[in-house]
Simulated scan of single mutants.
Amino acid sequence: MTRDVGIRVLIVDDDPVVRFGLAMMLRAASDLHVAGEASTGLEALDRVDELHPDVVLMDVRMPGMDGLTATEHLLSRPDPPGIIVLTTFDADDTVLRALRAGAAGFLLKDTPPHELVGAVRAVASGSHTLSADVTRRLIDLADTAHGRPRRAAARERLGVLAPRELEVAKEVGAGLSNAQIAGRHHISLPTVKTHVSSILTKLGVASRVQVALLVQDAELDDD
């Protein structure tokens, strides 16, 4: 019997060649363990119940239950795995929907191996991953994907934040790390982490990505 060690990863993609390539990249890292594979969203739900992975690499477009629906199902459960949306297209409404649901990140399938491994490690540790290029594309898409109703709703949600928390939320929306926020506002890193934790709790979201999208929806810089 093989002993499972390290970060357990479930690969979900309908293309066996893609699954094989991803598995090869992950197995090159000694701290990552490919716990299993699935070829549909429905199968992914069963495999998560069976294998309890730390991270799921989730393709979006699959037959039957797609990865987006599977992501929403998984993230509605108690103590879900971290989910990285992995696909060939850059950004569209399906990716925004996945990130709003709480997916921990979004990577393209041609992401270099070292970046993929780093993203899995980051998500397993409770962080979130979204490349700067993808962030810009998502923001551009979000700008054209909604109107005044979403902006008003976002501003109402952000209204529960204290002034300093709102400042930090806006920096998260700009893609800054905790260390960058601390430097810009001349506050300690633990203080930033406390603010971010409070922001997540007050907004009822699970990730920095969700905070960033909410800030973008609010269009605070347009005032």
Rank of each mutant, 00 (worst) to 15 (best):
P113E: 03
R184A: 10
A179V: 12
P78K: 07
F106D: 13
L51V: 13
A124F: 15
D31E: 12
E171L: 15
T71L: 04
L22P: 13
D143R: 12
L57D: 01
S127F: 00
V192N: 10
D13A: 02
L74S: 03
H146C: 09
D133A: 06
A29Q: 11
I139E: 02
H195F: 08
L166F: 02
V60P: 13
A212C: 04
L32S: 03
A132P: 13
S198A: 10
K193R: 14
A104P: 11
V172D: 02
L75M: 12
V123S: 11
K202A: 13
A142P: 00
L158T: 03
A91T: 09
Q216F: 09
L176Q: 10
E156I: 07
R151M: 13
R47C: 08
T191N: 13
L32G: 00
L10V: 03
D222Y: 00
H52T: 03
D133R: 15
T201G: 03
R61P: 01
G82Y: 12
R3G: 11
T71A: 13
A28G: 08
R157W: 00
L57I: 02
S125D: 15
A132F: 00
H114E: 14
G102E: 12
L74T: 13
N178T: 13
S198F: 00
Q210E: 02
T71G: 11
D93Q: 11
E43C: 07
V18C: 06
G159L: 05
M1R: 06
R77Q: 10
L141W: 08
T69I: 06
D54L: 05
G21Y: 08
T40M: 14
G118A: 11
A182P: 06
A44F: 05
E156G: 02
T94C: 01
P16Y: 04
M25D: 05
P112H: 01
A212S: 15
L57K: 07
E167Y: 02
L203V: 06
S207K: 11
A35C: 11
R27D: 15
V205S: 01
R151W: 01
T194F: 05
V205R: 00
L166D: 01
L107F: 05
T88L: 10
K170H: 05
H186V: 04
E50I: 01
F106Y: 15
T87Y: 04
G67N: 09
R208E: 05
A153M: 14
M25V: 04
A29R: 09
V56G: 14
T88R: 01
A153T: 10
R208K: 14
G102L: 08
L45E: 13
D93M: 11
T2S: 01
H33C: 06
M65K: 08
V120S: 02
H185F: 15
L96S: 07
F89S: 09
L158Y: 00
H114M: 07
L158F: 01
L10E: 09
L99C: 11
D140Q: 13
A169P: 06
